[in-house]
């Protein structure tokens, strides 16, 4: 091989050398910190979560203590600034306490399902045809039932209670997460860079962790956060049927159901638990959006 005469280019003068090299996740973190919307949304979520966590301090009244003489007071009543419900209990205190159960029932099943479903989906994606068929056909069986019916059926079999609600919702959410993860994984694994990683004698686990996971995680997280709001609503439905949280315990879904009858008397108060659900799920959706664009490093912020 003789050399071909070429102008040596490679590095232009004036390029500034960078400081300490960073990894992918550090870059994502930096980008998140520069995203105002995501930061704001995260702050709102933090307020909601800490209000629920510190409910005994945040509440102004006993959430269970009702009174016949001050039923369905409107928003802005002195002492009851968000009004009272149909048995005269303070809405603000009930919302704050209700956030505890609602957030636990909304987030825990999604978290658990994302971990289990994500693992199964990755396995189905990178595994052979047999493993893939096995996992995906079982998932199809779960898909055959409407999610509400499936949750009711599971809860009906194993009994009522918060733990069982979480368990049944987890089972309901595993199937869609497996499907999303599997399709993302099969897309990524045929790409050249995964083949290049295979060619570099790396063990399968390292390829999954360093090459496949960062590429599919964004999609899974976005999908999972969209499930949080569904999870809150489903757990409210289970409570309504007497399979989840039982009255008089405060829970957003239960409150919504109870106040339904008062919608013509005091519509604003009746809508407040719904507003809490909407704000919380909106925050989760916006957070996932921010996370996704931060993970898509090709987009300039």
């Amino acid at each position: 091989m003789t050399d071909i005469a070429v102008v040596q280019p490679a590095i232009k003068p004036g390029e500034q050398p960078d400081s300490e090299p960073r990894g992918y996740w550090r870059t994502v973190g930096d980008r998140l910190l520069h995203d105002r919307v995501t930061l704001g949304v995260a702050a709102v979520l933090l307020v909601i979560i800490s209000l629920a966590a510190f409910a005994p301090w945040a509440a102004t009244h006993d959430p269970l203590q009702g009174s016949v003489i001050r039923r369905l007071k409107p928003v802005g009543t002195p002492g009851y600034f968000l009004g009272t419900d149909e048995t005269g209990r303070d809405i603000w205190s009930r919302l704050v306490y209700g956030g505890r159960l609602s957030l636990v029932c909304g987030i825990t099943p999604v978290l658990l399902a994302t971990m289990i479903g994500g693992m199964l989906g990755l396995l189905a994606g990178v595994g052979g045809r047999l493993l893939n068929t096995l996992i995906m056909r079982v998932v199809d069986v779960f898909y055959a039932f409407p999610s509400v019916l499936l949750a009711i059926a599971i809860c009906g079999v194993i009994g009522a209670g918060i733990g069982n609600t979480i368990l049944s919702l987890t089972v309901v959410f595993i199937a869609p997460i497996v499907r999303v993860t599997e399709s993302l994984t099969t897309q990524i694994k045929t790409r050249d860079f995964v083949e290049a990683a295979r060619a570099s004698a790396a063990p399968l686990f390292a390829i999954i962790r360093h090459q496949i996971l960062p590429s599919v995680l964004g999609g899974i997280l976005v999908y999972a956060t969209s499930l949080v709001s569904i999870s809150i609503i489903l757990s409210a439905g289970l409570s309504f049927l007497g399979l989840g949280v039982t009255p008089p315990n405060p829970e957003w879904g239960l409150m919504l159901n109870a106040l339904r009858q008062s919608i013509f008397v005091n519509p604003i108060v009746a809508a407040l638990p719904g507003v809490a659900i909407v704000i919380t799920s909106l925050c989760f959706n916006l957070l996932s959006d921010g996370l996704r664009s931060a993970m898509d490093i090709k987009l300039q912020t």
Partner: peptide, 20 residues
């Protein structure tokens, strides 16, 4: 397409030595 779009150049080159 043969380079992982979510990895830095240094990480891409270091992947083989680190894992294999």
């Amino acid at each position: 397409s043969s380079l992982n779009p979510r990895a830095t150049i240094a990480d891409i080159v270091a992947f083989g030595p680190r894992t294999a």
